[in-house]
Design a protein around this nucleic acid. Structure first.
Length: 828
DNA sequence: AGCACGCCGACT
DNA sequence: GTCGGCGTGCTC
């Protein structure tokens, strides 16, 4: 039977994944001319709702028309070949099921925005419009502009309007029939083009080219250049090489005008080629690595462990040279023909590490980072799809790239919480997704950390993961000496200046004198400076959220870190009009300022969210510091990762208590990780380093273990408490947050959910409702319910389904209709 | 999530 | 009387 005929006679329907948080599948009809071209995994542009146009992915092709509605037509097919693999479609569904969201949301996260189209409403003149007399004068003027420009976006039009109400004006004009609105769809990816020059076709062989040189008699410069062009090419290769052309720079000896003449006389021709946005890596600079003996041992042990286990936890202390070991393993897997993904937390994916990897893997390697432009991300995505990149180093979302043949996934700094996406959905954990995907593709997973997460270490201890430990630092590096400063004592003895203890200041001064560098770590959590009136005690609060506004000194603004609200800092108190406004609290900026005052000569750099917004800012700060002209680097989390500075011999950690006493069962684990990681910045090579820890609670046991660098001892102690309270790793935690403008509605909805869940799961498994840490965000009151589900005892799928069901149920009740429920599976 | 539709308060 | 606030419902 001719299947083509059968297909021709039937209407083709497609299920399309759309970037909307709606559980149902959307069925569209393929127009006849596309019925044989649509493929699962291809992008389509479809109409959605009244005036919207969206990019979707075909997830299924079938012949069943939907029963309850009439399917709309696919507007456009964007791809001849699918851009989403069946593997990805499977993964999207898995992530959606596990993390209780919708496959369309996962798809939206997986595709770089450059691969999606956005529609923009544009207006144009209605050709049938005749009744000008209906219009006001200013409307006639607008119409003139529209006529001139043929088509305008809303933004374009607003430039011509004094008032801000563009929508209103447009609506009026539509009602009067003067203009039409249509949706323009634009693809955002544009390939990078480079202009090149080559000989015109008729000269592209040796005899013609030589004749040309004769022709140019008298025009010495031009002759020379053409000769040089030909000179580079062996006689029989002129035509072939001419295809690729040469950069303009090659012709730089010619004046601009003679070059123009050559082009005009059709001797040379200009043409464009599409190039990669990523630099070709020069093969000469390629390097290989040699492992030290302990590194080689570790690598061998990891390989041995992989023979038994799919997942291996590699516990290597800071400075043990994990990167070299990774390179060794990656190399092995790549030469077996499989793909490799190396994941790093965003703050650790630095140019330092990228260029180190590039020296080994050259342009086989793709880099996937959020600070790359849309266009660059599209190129990496397509590069993986087409097999140009066998190896990718990337951040969290790189696990969603179109891998089909993974051999190894490495999650470095596997304990980092930034592997878990918090907002918006999908709230996935890249490490856990990696383990799932690797399992499916029969790949190995290596989790690397100096301070493993309790989850992973527990799995390893229970034989679920292999475990390899390396406790020897690379080269001559030694562990730093610790100085714990009891700030309460220091205050009593009046040995504190601007929040710095006297002994730290002395050490800092000596360090500056020795021309050695210092890193100061300031935990951001709960330690942002705010503005306070000394007269009436007014504090700048966000109007929409239950938090104080953070005072950013460098641009003198008050900013809400939850909703983004921003205002210029007032000069006088808005309540009592006093001018005694003061910045309170210790932020990185404040430390920088105070230190500068104490050490006017010192060169100080600051690295935090504010100073690293632009694409290269981060790198610039690091380079500047690495070059050694800087004495002190003050920063947040981001200075704790992936940076090796040889000349750093002093590290200070302030407000360690804030981390330790944070109201969260993981607070101690976090504090241990953080302080250990930061300490690792001190004394990388021969120089022994010193770490100062300023704290109000010097006796806390976390500090004891940090000082002894005793992760295992810390784990053994802490894990008992976890077990006692049935916290992870002994259980999984699902948090459900309710959001509503009315405090008590939000509270009651959360209470109702908690009640039904307690009935279903037993009261000991359900916590809350409790108000969220920040009770109100964007004018919505937040309440949380936590569900603790012990591992291997419950049917997770059924529990999740029940939770989802109950949320839907509560949402149908009148008073809770507009309550939003946000579910976070495996909340961290 | 967006986005349009629809029903009530405070302005010309 | 009108503008525009945001509650409600729907999206193939």
């Amino acid at each position: 039977m001719q299947s083509g005929e059968l297909f021709n006679s039937e209407t083709i329907f497609t299920d399309v994944l759309l970037p909307v948080p709606i559980p149902q599948a959307f069925t569209y009809r393929a127009p006849r001319h596309l019925s044989e071209q649509v493929q699962v995994g291809s992008r389509v542009i479809v109409p959605f709702g009244k005036n919207r146009v969206l990019t979707g992915i075909i997830s299924k092709i079938h012949g069943t028309p939907p029963e309850k509605y009439k399917a709309k037509y696919i507007a456009e097919l964007m791809d001849d070949e699918p851009v989403v693999t069946p593997e990805q479609l499977w993964l999207f569904q898995w992530v959606a099921d596990y993390y209780m969201c919708h496959p369309g949301e996962v798809m939206n996260m997986a595709l770089p925005s450059g691969m999606k189209v956005n529609s923009e409403s544009r207006i144009q003149l209605n050709p049938d419009f005749e009744s000008e007399e209906l219009l006001e004068d200013f409307e006639k003027e607008i119409l003139k502009v529209v006529e001139e420009k043929e088509s305008l976006s809303y933004a374009d039009l607003s430039k011509y309007l004094e008032e801000s109400s563009v929508n209103k004006v447009i609506k009026k004009l539509i009602d009067k029939g003067a203009i039409l609105v249509y949706e323009e769809v634009k693809e955002r990816y544009s390939p990078k083009k480079v202009k090149k020059l080559r000989l015109a076709a008729k000269y592209a062989n040796q005899s013609a080219a030589l004749a040309l040189i004769d022709e140019l008699e008298g025009k010495t410069k031009q002759q020379e250049v053409i000769l040089k062009f030909i000179g580079l090419l062996p006689p029989d290769k002129i035509r072939e090489k001419n295809l690729h052309g040469l950069d303009k720079a090659f012709f730089k000896e010619l004046s601009a005008s003679s070059l123009k003449t050559l082009i005009k006389n059709e001797v040379l021709e200009e043409f464009e080629i599409t190039v990669s946005r990523f630099e070709k890596y020069d093969a000469d600079e390629m390097a290989t690595i040699t492992l030290t003996e302990p590194q080689q041992n570790a690598s061998d042990q990891i390989m041995e462990a992989f023979a038994e286990q799919q997942v291996v936890l590699f516990h290597g202390i800071t400075g043990s040279g994990k990167t070299e070991i990774y390179i060794d393993l990656i190399d092995k897997v790549l030469s077996s023909g499989s793909q490799v993904l190396l994941m790093l937390p965003e703050i650790a994916l630095t140019t330092q590490i990228v260029s180190r990897l590039q020296k080994v893997f050259g342009d086989k390697m793709g880099v996937y980072h959020s600070k790359f432009s849309d266009n660059e991300r599209v190129e990496v995505y397509m590069g993986v799809l087409k097999g140009n990149y066998q190896f990718v180093v990337g951040v969290r979302s790189s696990i969603l790239l179109p891998f089909t043949n993974l051999g190894l996934v490495i999650a470095d700094e596997e304990h980092e919480t930034s592997y878990k996406q918090f907002d918006p959905a999908p709230r996935y954990h890249a490490r856990d997704v990696a383990i799932m995907l690797a399992h499916r593709q029969h790949a190995k997973v290596l989790l690397g950390s100096a301070t493993p997460s309790f989850e992973s270490y527990w799995q390893a201890k229970n034989g679920k993961y292999g475990l390899v430990e390396l406790h020897q630092r690379f080269g001559k590096a030694t562990l730093p000496a610790f100085e714990v400063i009891d700030m309460k004592e220091e205050r009593k003895a009046e040995r504190v200046n601007k929040g710095f203890s006297q002994s730290f200041l002395e050490a800092l001064e000596a360090n500056i004198k020795r021309k050695e560098q210092t890193i100061i770590f300031q935990n951001r959590r709960g330690y942002a400076p705010y503005m306070n009136c000394e007269e009436c005690n007014w504090i700048g609060q966000c109007h929409q959220c239950a938090v104080s506004l953070t005072h950013h000194m460098y641009e003198n603004t008050l900013v809400c870190h939850y909703c983004g609200y921003k205002e210029t800092a007032p000069k006088v108190c808005p309540v009592c009009e006093s001018t005694k406004l003061k910045s309170v609290g210790v932020g990185t900026e404040k430390i920088e300022e105070d230190l500068q005052e104490l050490f006017p000569e010192a060169r100080i750099l600051r690295m935090d969210l504010d100073t690293t917004r632009s694409k290269n800012a981060y790198q610039n700060i690091i380079s500047e510091f690495a070059e050694g002209d800087v004495d002190i680097l003050v920063g947040t989390q981001m200075i704790s990762k992936g940076l090796d500075f040889d000349n750093v011999s002093l590290v200070a950690v302030f407000n360690a208590d804030k981390m330790i006493y944070f109201p969260d069962f993981r607070a101690a684990e976090r504090a241990f990780q953080m302080i250990t990681q930061v300490s690792g910045r001190a004394g990388r090579k021969e120089k022994p380093g010193t770490v100062f820890i300023q704290t109000g609670g010097p006796d806390h046991s976390v500090l004891k273990y940090v000082l002894e660098n005793d992760f295992i001892g810390f784990y053994d102690k802490e894990i008992h408490e976890r077990e006692g309270f049935n916290y992870p790793p002994f259980s999984r935690v699902i948090s459900i947050t309710t959001k509503h403008i009315m405090r008590n509605v939000s509270h009651q909805a959360a209470g109702k959910l908690a009640a039904v869940l307690k009935k279903y799961l037993g009261p000991q498994r359900v916590l809350g409702p409790e108000k969220a840490l920040v009770e109100r965000v964007r004018n919505q009151y937040l309440f949380e319910v936590w569900v603790k589900l012990e591992k291997d005892k419950l049917n997770m799928k059924a529990v999740k389904a029940y939770i989802a069901e109950q949320i839907t149920e509560i949402n149908t009740e009148k008073e809770f209709k507009s309550v939003r429920f946000v579910v976070n599976v495996d909340v961290v």
